[in-house]
Every structure is written in C-alpha cells, then in structure tokens.
Simulated assay, not measured.
Amino acid sequence: MNRRDAIKNVALLLGSAISASTLAALEGCKSSAPKNYALEAPETKSILAEIAETIIPETDTPGAKAAKVDEFIVLMMNDCYEQKDQQVLLDGLKKIDEASQQQYKKPFTELTAEEKTAVLTAVDKERVAYNKRENKQPEDGPHYFQLIKELTLLGYFTSEPGATKALRYVAVPGKYEGCIPYKEGEKAWAM
C-alpha cells in the first residue's frame, strides 16, 4: 500500500473529515510539483506549528508539534497542491497573523494558548460562513482554514505519535478480528 492510499484510508477512519479538495489533492500528488519556497520559510513553519498545536494541543498524549505536523503540511502543500492552493494557505496565514495583531497587538506565535484559541475560533466561524454561502462558484477554492484543519488532522493521525499515543495502534499485518468490543471513552483504533 502506498502513502496516498494509506492517507485515504485514514480519512475514512476519521469519519470522512477530509474534504473533497484534500482528497483530490492526494489523487494529483506529484513529487515533481514546483516547490513554493515561501512555505519552507521558518516563520511559515513556526505559525503553522502554533496553529496545529492549538488545534491538537499536548495533553496526556503528544500534540501536533510533537508529531511535526507543520513539516507534514509544508510537504503536502508542496507535493500535492496546486500553486493557487499554496497561495491560499500562505495568504490565510497572513490573515491569521493580522487578526492577532489587530486583536492583541502581538503576532500569533506570541499569543497565549487562550488568545490563540480565540483568534482561531473567529477564523473558524468565518470558514463556516464561507462554506455555507449561497453564491459559491466552482472556481472558488477551499477556505484556508479548511486546508489547515484537514492537513493538521491528517498529519497528526498518520504520524507515529498520533497513531500510537492518541489512537490504539495494531501493527499490520496482524490477525483479523471482525468484532472487537468497544467501550465508550476508549481510544479509536489506528492501523
């Protein structure tokens, strides 16, 4: 099984939390896609790491930073997404930083956890409104926060810390057990 198929399978395990645009990007994944070096910039990776950690913070399990989700997002954007989507993400990161500057007079990376959550909650409300609007055009791409959230989930739950610490992991190949009891509150399975 190649990585693309594994990621699609994880998307199904996540309850199809991955949008059609992300799945389409996986279909078109090419290692020869032109790199967007702005995505490789330390300040870009830094804000991506903080956003991802706000989405999946460290608790009794490792957070998104420990899983290096920022590096995953950069890799996926460079290898699998078109330049217009890469630009949507970069512009979105600027908008998040501008929103934190406007609200707290500090860059996003310097905010407290509560302030980061407040900024991202407002951005997520904007994303929901964007997705619900009635005058959508086919050429309208996904909202930048949709890309970030989906790639954060995908990166985290396909990482070693996410699959082994946040989920219950069974190495494959293993024996097939078609019926495993599940108790409410238990971790979901990763394969």
Rank of each mutant, 00 (worst) to 15 (best):
N2R: 08
R4I: 11
D5K: 11
K8R: 10
K8A: 06
V10C: 07
L13V: 06
L14C: 08
G15P: 06
I18D: 02
I18H: 02
L23S: 11
A25L: 04
L26T: 04
L26E: 02
E27Q: 13
G28R: 12
C29G: 00
S32P: 01
S32T: 12
E40Q: 13
E40G: 05
T44F: 00
T44Y: 00
K45E: 06
L48G: 01
I51H: 01
I51M: 05
P57K: 03
P62N: 12
G63T: 06
A66D: 15
V69T: 03
F72A: 05
I73V: 12
M76S: 10
M77P: 13
M77D: 02
D79P: 00
C80Q: 05
Q83N: 10
K84R: 05
K84W: 01
Q87H: 09
D91I: 01
K94Q: 14
K94N: 12
K95H: 13
D97W: 00
A99Q: 10
Q102R: 15
Q103I: 01
K105D: 11
K105T: 09
P107C: 03
P107E: 05
E110I: 03
E110W: 03
L111H: 05
A113N: 09
E115G: 01
A118I: 07
A118H: 08
A122I: 04
K125L: 10
K125E: 12
K132N: 14
R133K: 15
E134C: 05
E134W: 07
N135W: 08
E139P: 00
G141A: 03
P142L: 12
H143C: 07
H143T: 06
Y144T: 11
L147N: 09
I148N: 04
I148C: 04
T152N: 02
T152E: 04
T152R: 01
L154N: 02
L154F: 05
G162Y: 00
A163E: 09
T164Y: 03
Y169V: 06
V172E: 13
Y176Q: 09
C179P: 04
C179K: 14
C179T: 14
P181M: 08
K183N: 08
K183Q: 15
E184T: 13
K187M: 14
K187C: 12
A188Q: 09
M191W: 10
